[in-house]
Simulated scan of single mutants.
Amino acid sequence: MSEAQHLLVVDDDNRIRDLLKKYLISNGYRVSAAANAATARKLITTFDFDLAIFDIMMPGETGLELLESLRQGGVRVPVLLLTARGETSDRIEGLKSGADDYLAKPFEPEELMLRVAAILRRTHVEPPPEEIEMSGLVFNAKRAELNDGEHHVRLTEAETHLLSMLAAKAGEPVSREELASKSPGSTERSIDVQVTRLRRKIEPDPKQPIHIQTVRGIGYRLMPD
Score class of each variant (00 low, 15 high):
M1D: 06
A4V: 00
Q5T: 01
L7Q: 01
L8N: 01
V10K: 12
V10L: 12
D11Y: 11
D11W: 09
D11I: 04
D12L: 14
D13C: 06
N14R: 13
I16T: 08
L19T: 11
L20I: 03
L24G: 05
I25T: 14
I25W: 01
S26L: 15
N27M: 05
N27L: 03
N27V: 06
V31Q: 10
S32N: 15
A34D: 14
A34Q: 13
A34R: 10
A35F: 01
N36F: 03
T39N: 14
T39K: 12
I44H: 02
F47D: 15
F49L: 06
F49H: 06
D50G: 13
A52D: 01
A52H: 10
I53C: 13
F54A: 06
I56F: 12
P59I: 08
G63I: 02
G63S: 04
E65F: 01
L67N: 06
Q72Y: 11
Q72P: 00
Q72T: 07
G74W: 04
G74I: 02
V75Y: 03
R76M: 03
V79R: 04
L82Y: 10
T83Q: 00
A84F: 00
T88E: 09
T88A: 09
D90G: 03
D90W: 03
R91G: 03
R91C: 09
G98W: 02
A99T: 12
D100C: 12
D101A: 15
Y102M: 14
Y102F: 15
Y102E: 12
Y102C: 09
K105L: 04
K105T: 02
E108A: 08
E108L: 08
P109I: 06
M113Q: 10
M113D: 01
M113C: 01
L114G: 09
R115Y: 08
R115G: 00
V116N: 00
A117C: 00
R121P: 05
T123S: 12
V125P: 06
P127V: 07
P129A: 03
E131G: 06
V138E: 07
N140E: 10
N140S: 15
A141M: 09
R143E: 15
E145S: 11
E145M: 08
N147H: 13
D148W: 08
V153G: 11
V153F: 10
T156F: 03
E157F: 07
E157W: 00
E159K: 05
H161N: 11
A167P: 00
A168V: 02
A168S: 09
A168D: 05
K169C: 02
P173T: 13
V174Q: 05
V174W: 04
E177K: 13
E178W: 01
E178P: 00
E178I: 09
S181F: 00
S181K: 06
S183Q: 10
S183I: 02
S186K: 11
S190Y: 00
I191Q: 05
V193F: 15
Q194E: 15
Q194C: 01
Q194A: 14
Q194H: 13
V195F: 10
R197Q: 13
R200D: 13
P204C: 13
D205W: 08
Q208K: 15
P209K: 07
I212H: 02
Q213D: 04
Q213V: 15
V215E: 07
Y220H: 14
R221P: 00
L222M: 08
M223G: 00
P224H: 03
D225F: 03
